[in-house]
Design a protein around this nucleic acid. Structure first.
Length: 555
RNA sequence: GCGCUUGUAGCUCAGUUUGGAUAGAGCGUCGCCCUGCGGAGGCGAAGGCCGUGGGUUCGAGUCCCACCAAGCGCGCCA
């Protein structure tokens, strides 16, 4: 349990006890909300519960606060309890209890901070899912980093997470890609051919075609055109997928499942989902096409799922995919991370899920907003089809995967962000990522120096009573917040709390380091501090790992 | 026009989900701190009509309404 929840529980008990004693009137209890006050003199935790109760109880909030405070059950965590105007209860954690937690952190190691919030619930997290028609750009990188970090945190919070990439290996855009590649293949052999109007114009297509010529020669020239397009397309797609996997891995992003869109048509999910919609009365033949009557579910318009050509739309396969997620694989919760350009798809997807008989709250869709790529003041337009490409790979090569991840994670998903390449390069020395990693490397250095100098420390004796400096206690207090952060990120699905927490933890460590010398003639105190910094190192490392970053021993 | 998102310090952004005490951080600017464990560090200063205007409330950056500005979406593309 997080310390915050524990404090809330103690307050709730105090309130109930005061009512039991008759010092406060009986009434239904509101949820007890505990927060970290902004000012240190207001303690570690505070609640405005008395202010919330004042009206219902018809009493002065200050008097309520005093009576709750007087009825709090004794508990080792609680240090000072103060009542403050106009009706706050401020609670400080007992420093001696905090000092003992170093032992707990060390015992739990890289599992410290885990939460049982998820209770083993099965969550499917679908992200990136970029069409396999070209390299990833920075916007994709943002969604990729967000998804992988969320997966890490949800796992830490006790959810069973499946990381999934939905591979759009069917449909219009693939056809377009196939034909584009075929044209480049012809051109690579000096044959006259014209790119499709909406074709993929990027130079990577030219290179890919050359590669195919190098390996397969002219053998596709003799095939019937349709067959040649199909075969070349398949080869090209496989190569693109390999490149996607390679680039994602370099960014620290890996998937449990690569789910094929095509398989939905081969495995019957498309038919079953459509049948279910028809059964529910949500399908209507009109103007030669098959429509999903989403207006019946409050949508502003209906949506075509089968074109008049007979070809299903992207929306149709996405419905089949969600049929598979919810009704075949029975995930308790499904999270999709989509780019901002899919935002118009959100509400109709929820409507479709509802039409399949699934409570739409089980589907959570995160929209990862646009990344504007810049070089200084100049905006770099990015479009796969137009061919002017700054790839994610290039950005990673310039600023490094760790810095990329930290930078993407630092902004909430629903805020647009600028990614200035000049700035990212220029700041690479004092990028905030280094600040956090530096703290980790600094501790590693202290520990190895201590070993060299013959210091020893282990958990055979409890030295926590020696940790009395406010800087030591502040460091421990911040370390204990990790589990709160993990729970906050898990419930809000907002990963940007992670880099903020890591930065705060690093700051408090640096402050501790400034004021408390670790290696001293006083061996017992040194041992206590060595245990503390070793624990801090573990928490820093875990914070970095949750973000998918490395925790370097040296920099 | 309609929908979604955003608007907080010179710049980049937290804080808005759950209303609470004097609104925070990084960068930048200015000033200070190295006898000794990593100065890629620490301390301090300056810098804010929280987009605008109403409303609800004992209390609003946070909730409600209107408006302004920016981005995205509104296709038998994905």
């Amino acid at each position: 349990m997080t310390l915050k929840k524990r404090i809330a529980e103690i307050l709730r008990q105090g309130l109930a006890e005061a009512q039991q004693r008759g010092t406060l009137p009986a009434m239904a209890l509101p949820e007890v909300i505990v927060e970290h006050p902004q000012k240190a003199e207001h303690g570690d935790y505070a609640t405005s519960l008395p202010l919330r109760l004042a009206r219902g109880m018809g009493m002065n909030p200050l008097a309520i606060a005093e009576r709750i405070a007087a009825a709090l059950p004794p508990s080792p965590e609680i240090g000072k309890v103060e009542v403050a105007a106009p009706g706050f209860i401020n609670i400080s954690i007992n420093p001696a209890w905090l000092a003992q937690q170093v032992q707990t952190v060390r015992k739990q190691g890289d599992r410290f901070g885990d939460s049982d919030l998820g209770k083993g619930k099965r969550v499917q997290l679908e992200f990136v899912s970029v069409n396999p028609t070209g390299p990833l750009h920075v916007g994709h990188g943002r969604g990729a980093v967000l998804g992988s970090a969320l997966a890490n945190v949800l796992s830490a919070a006790g959810f069973a997470v499946a990381r999934e990439y939905y591979l759009n290996d069917a449909g219009n855009q693939m056809e377009n890609f196939f034909r584009s590649l075929y044209v480049r293949y012809l051109q690579a052999q000096g044959r006259p051919a014209e790119m499709p109007a909406e074709g993929y114009m990027g130079t990577y297509m030219v290179e890919l075609a050359r590669e195919i010529v190098r390996e397969f020669g002219d053998r596709f020239l003799t095939l019937p055109q349709d067959e040649a397009v199909r075969q070349i397309g398949q080869i090209g797609m496989v190569r693109i997928v390999e490149a996607l996997k390679r680039d994602l891995k370099a960014l620290g992003v890996e998937f449990d499942i690569w789910f094929s869109e095509k398989s939905l048509f081969e495995g019957g999910q498309y038919e079953k989902a459509t049948a279910l919609l028809r059964q529910g009365g949500y399908l209507e033949q009109r103007e030669g096409a098959l429509w999903f009557t989403s207006t019946a579910l409050g949508e502003s318009k209906d949506n075509v799922i089968v074109r008049s050509t007979g070809a299903p739309t992207y929306f149709a396969s996405d419905i089949a995919y969600h049929y598979n997620k919810f009704l075949e694989r029975n995930f308790d919760e499904v999270i999709n991370i989509w780019g901002a350009d899919h935002q118009g798809h959100v509400s109709r997807m929820k409507a479709a899920v509802a039409a399949l008989g699934v409570e739409p709250q089980r589907l959570k869709i995160i929209i990862s907003q646009m990344v504007t790529l810049k070089r200084g003041e100049e905006v770099v337009r990015v479009s796969k089809r137009s061919g002017e490409l700054i790839t994610l790979r290039e950005v990673m090569d310039e600023v490094g995967a760790d810095a990329c991840r930290f930078f993407f994670l630092s902004r909430s998903a629903d805020a647009q962000m600028d990614f200035d390449l000049e700035l990212a390069k220029k700041q690479s020395q004092d990028n905030p990522v280094y600040y956090v990693q530096y703290a980790h490397a600094r501790i590693a250095s202290i520990l190895s120096k201590a070993r060299e100098r013959g210091y020893t420390w282990d958990d055979s004796s409890d030295t926590s009573a020696l940790l009395t400096s406010p800087h030591e206690i502040a460091l421990i207090r911040k370390m204990l917040e990790l589990s709160e952060v993990i729970e906050t990120v898990s419930t809000s699905l907002e990963a940007h709390h992670l880099p903020y927490y890591a930065t705060e933890l690093a700051t408090i460590f640096h402050l501790f380091y400034k004021h408390c010398r670790v290696m001293l003639p006083n061996r017992p105190l040194s041992a206590a501090r060595l245990k503390l910094v070793e624990a801090a190192k573990a928490v820093l490392a875990r914070s970095l790992h949750l973000m998918g970053m490395t925790a370097p021993e040296k920099m």
